[in-house]
Design a protein around this nucleic acid. Structure first.
Lengths: 255, 255
DNA sequence: TTTGTAATGTGTCTTTCTAACACAATGTAG
DNA sequence: CTACATTGTGTTAGAAAGACACATTACAAA
């Protein structure tokens, strides 16, 4: 499935839709921190969002699924298109030319890789522990970054990340997100940390619990998580049916 | 600025980004009805959304502005990107081939116009009275349609329209829309009809007024609208500064 | 073993927003 | 000049959000 960098760059013009790409903002949650999966391309100074091209007979969304699968090993995940970025200034021909040359290819002016690119942005929510970050042929590193510590990114990828986060925040009160980001069993404080890191602000513990339980998508288990330094909190899991329903019809208080 | 149909079809490959277009869902409001501007292409059976291609050195959003300007004569309007449509099934090569042939051009298999197209969807809110619908060279008609009476549309344009409306509805509680759709002076009932037609449901007159006034973006004038069959309602206009602020920072109750 | 501490489990009160509804005022049509 | 539909302006009830209090519990330090 995965082809080597040189062959992709060489044959891309015949394989892919010209001038169009997808970029994925892949969010994970670990150690009470929101993480983003970033890629370090060879010969590039900055890190970048994992992205890819669209085969001529491939659904655009499927290209995003493919990127996700190949970078995390995960399939069947929460994926949402959020914005398309088409600014003229977002294409860096010099960088791409360097990539071409370093792959031993001719940097012909008409080369498909040197044209202007418009990119469709997707964001994904994945289970951190289940994902195994792996670089592709053209990149030298692939790793999780703390959202707080994300370095300056390639091109407009900083803007893309920002817009993804903004979209996620806006949609947070309409759709459930925990299932994709948390392990199967989790505590209420853990769920709260997740919301707090996404929103970037503190929430009241008691009001938060009331709201979440009101959505009716949680089941409290008999187990508690012991081992912590204090009172052992209950474990919860999601009620799969109700969770799916909330994904389709939105979150609503149900008393 | 506007070129004739044949020349566009012939030279498009050199002028435009390949395989990418913009489509605009242009909303207007008149006679207490929400309207959409539709286009009837020559040789096409169905009506379609006004759309266009993106010049190789043009911002994608600017292409949308250009479409709007050329179909309505309006500039400086409310315009929002809402979704990008890339389904494989959305390209109708047969129709495009017919268009080519009817323009006296060779329908070469590699012709730029016969490739798969991905389209970026924008929706616009415009002042109905200020807009002058005008067809372009490749279309035989351009007209406002009642949202209720929109005929079956070309390709996936029905889906695009639906998604635009859905997006508009979701954003209605976050951002003000009246300024773009209403004349400068308007009555509270008129503003309410606007919201009702967008949302597709009835609202309580008194609760609506309280909510709107609470946003603090309206100024009540001393005038009333007489001539109606009943009690003359007050006229309102928008407080431009506060309206702009609401566009940037969202609508919030301010008491 | 005891006790202090920091976290969790649960409940109350207040404020804000939404929803449902009542009544007086007014302009035109008949 | 009267009937009526529509507007202007309330009130009240319920739901959701926000702020806060107190008892419970598990580990850790004494």
């Amino acid at each position: 499935m995965e082809e080597n960098a040189g062959s992709i760059l060489q044959n891309g013009g015949a394989l892919f839709l010209p001038g169009l790409s997808v970029d994925c903002v892949i969010f994970g949650f670990h150690d009470n921190q929101l993480k983003v999966l970033l890629l370090k391309m060879r010969h590039a100074e900055k890190w970048a969002l994992p992205g890819g091209f669209i085969y001529k007979e491939e659904e655009v969304e499927h290209a995003a699924v493919r990127v996700l699968q190949s970078r995390t090993g995960l399939s069947n995940i929460f994926l949402r298109q959020f914005h398309t970025f088409g600014e003229l200034s977002r294409t860096d021909k010099l960088l791409n030319k360097k990539l071409l040359v370093s792959s031993g290819l001719q940097a012909d002016e008409n080369h498909w890789f040197l044209q202007r690119f418009v990119t469709v942005g997707y964001y994904a929510l994945v289970n951190f522990s289940g994902a195994v970050p792996r670089p592709d042929a053209t990149s030298e590193a692939c790793a999780w970054w703390d959202l707080q510590e994300v370095p300056p990114l390639n091109l407009d990828h900083g803007d893309i990340l920002q817009k993804a986060l903004e979209t996620l925040r806006k949609q947070l009160s309409d759709q459930p997100v925990g299932y994709s980001l948390l392990p199967e069993k989790f505590t209420m404080p853990e769920l709260q940390r997740l919301y707090e890191t996404i929103l970037g602000k503190q929430l009241d513990r008691r009001n938060f619990q009331r709201r979440m339980l009101g959505y009716g998508i949680l089941k409290r288990l008999e187990e508690r998580r012991s081992g912590g330094a204090h009172k052992a909190p209950y474990l919860y899991c999601f009620d799969t049916d109700r969770y799916q329903d909330a994904l389709l019809n939105g979150l609503q208080q149900k008393w």
